[in-house]
Amino acid sequence: MKVKVHVTLKPGVLDPQGTAIGHALGSLGFAGASNVRQGKYIEFDLAETDPKAARETAKAMCEKLLANTVIENYAIDLA
């Protein structure tokens, strides 16, 4: 089972990289992009066929390693 994890900074946590990206978009002439936030995308194959169990495992992985829950949120997609 393919697991896709998006890790993003929590709302309210300053994101200087996102700000820089937004700034660069503006200077390239792309008007109208605001509130740019950047994050990480992680994908892997999991040897688990039950979606519920897979989601539980992925959640544990995020809590323990893939995200730092002091500053980051995560979202899990199974495919």
């Binding site: 300053l14 200087p16 990289q17 820089a20 730092n68 002091v70």
Partner: peptide
Amino acid sequence: LTEAGMLPGALMRNRGL
């Protein structure tokens, strides 16, 4: 130490990147 939860908070990318 912060990642291990032995100290509070986190160390993020420098504001100047």
